[in-house]
Structures are given as C-alpha cells and as structure tokens.
Amino acid sequence: MPTMNIIQAVNDALRLEMRRDPRVVILGEDVAKFGGVFRATSGLVDEFGPDRVMDTPLAEAGIIGAAIGMALYGLRPVPEIQFADFIFPAFDQIVNELAKFRYRSGGQYPAPVVIRTPYGGGIRGGHYHSQSPEALFIHTPGLKVVVPSDPYEAKGLLLSCIRQNDPVLFLEPKRIYRASKGEVPEGDYTIPLGKARVVREGTQVTVIAWGSMLHTALEGVDKAAELGISCEVIDLRTLMPFDVETMVESVKKTGRAVIVQEAPRTCGFAAELSATISERAMAWLEAPVERLCGFDTPFPYTLEHEYMPNGDRVLSTIQKTLDW
C-alpha cells in the first residue's frame, strides 16, 4: 500500500472518481494550472482537461452558485474554496440555495455539490487563514459536514461524499495536510458517512474530537496513559449527521466525556455534543461533560500557541473530569 499525506489522498480520491464518473467536475481559484494553493488538485487538469477542471475568477458566490446549477442536472461538481475563511462571500449561496434545494423542490432537485476547503489554525496564518467555521454549517439543515483526520479517512470519506446525493462541506484540516501520513489503498474504497470511529478503546474517560484535534486529543490521551488513566478516543468523522450512538454508548461505558474542539467555545459544535450526551446518558455520567475549545476571540495571530488546544490542556481536562 502506498504511503500518502492528506493532500495526496484527496488528490488520489478525486482522480479515481473522475476516471470512474465523467459527471465529476472541479472548479475553483487556481485549481487547474496551479493545482490548488495546497496542490490538492495537482495534475488533474492534465489528465481530464479544462472542461472538467476549471480555473475560475475570484468569485466565491459565483463558484458555489454555478456548482449548484451544474449539480441540478446531474453533474457532480467538487468546488474548492481556497481557505474556509474565504467561504463567506458564498455563505448565502450555501445556506439559502444549496442546503435547501432538495427540500424546497419537493425532492425534484437534489444538489450533490461537495465543497472542499482547508480549515483550522496551527500554521501561524492569523485571522484570515485559520478559522474553524464548522458550527455555522452544521447549523444549516440540508448540509452534511465531514472532516477527515488522516489520509486513509480523507480518501474514503471524500469518495463517499461524491457518490451520495446531498450537498457536503468537506473540511480538510490544513495543519496536518502534510504532517499526517499513512497507508492508503490504491484502489477504490469508501468510508460510510454518519459513522464515528473508535480510535482507541479505554474505560475511564471518552475523548471526542475530529480533524486535526484528533491528533491533539491523542497527545493528551498518551500523557494520561502514562499516569495510568485509560481513555476511549472517538473520531467523529461526520459532524452532520453525527453518530449519536457510538458516542453515547462509549460514555455509558466510561461515565465521563471530554470534547476537544478548535473553534471558539460559545455555540461551538462541542456544545451540541455535550447537550446530546447529557440528554442520552445522564444517568451514567460521573462528572459534567467537559469542553476543551478555542477561546471566544477572533483567531489570534501572535497568541496562536495559547489559543490552540494542546496535549497538556487535554490532559488537565481529562483529570478535571476524574477529580470532579
């Protein structure tokens, strides 16, 4: 099996699916000749030509709006937004048109658009290149939101996204784009949407994360293991619709939950997970569900190292639930 990083795995998935399905097209700023700012679409225009891999002008609402139109009549567009921070000029198209199309047309018009976009901090990118806006989109009924945490996950999840009929926001954790490496099968495989993955089994605390925070969570869990604390770690993978059962069953077993999220705390997705666990597993909880999050501040440039959850903070949050 070849070893890939996340960028290569995304590229591999796109190439495989474009070979398999002539309806798949890619559009975005600098995705063709340049191969994407992070090179995720590198080489695709050479193989599939400019009608299937389109450089667009700088116009996010145009990119997403046009992708919707393409999807209504059977194409399978996979637009790229260069950074999640730049998705907001297209927010209206996504929230008011894309997410609602299938519903408000009584099912006549599914809009299978898969929007790929890198998100998250940890690269010293400052305000405009670091945000984690997943909650805004999870809060938009009609959209699926998927976040891979390593190359294997990236390929399998992306293929599933392109093959189903709902619009998806596919958030790629750019901090670990190249740092996360692993074996990825060469051929076709998919990972089901809506299913979380138990990354590590344990007995005392359930730690839930997604994307690059999974790796941060594991760092903290490793430190906890050194102190003899046994944690179960869940990679959520699909944030919407999220896998309630895997999460709740784990918490029923451990009695404690820590959710690790990079986005600001208030109204973040961790709040929803916490509420769900409390509703479904109240009787099993030994301590309040803990959220380890970014702070309620615009993403800081200089103080990024303080803002980002890290292994030590994961450890102390785990200990907090144990000491309660």
């Binding site: 730049f86 000029p89 400052g126 305000h127 405009y128 290149h129 440039y301 200089t302």
Partner: peptide
C-alpha cells in the same frame, strides 16, 4: 493583527483586508 491588519486611526489609514 500582523501583515494584513495595518490600521492607524490618526493617519486615517483604514487597514488591510484579507477577504
């Protein structure tokens, strides 16, 4: 802010913008 965030109210310089 850093590079895209130069502001100076006294000089009436209203900033860089990254979007």
């Amino acid at each position: 802010g850093g590079s895209m965030h130069l502001f100076d109210a006294e000089k009436n310089f209203l900033g860089g913008y990254g979007i």
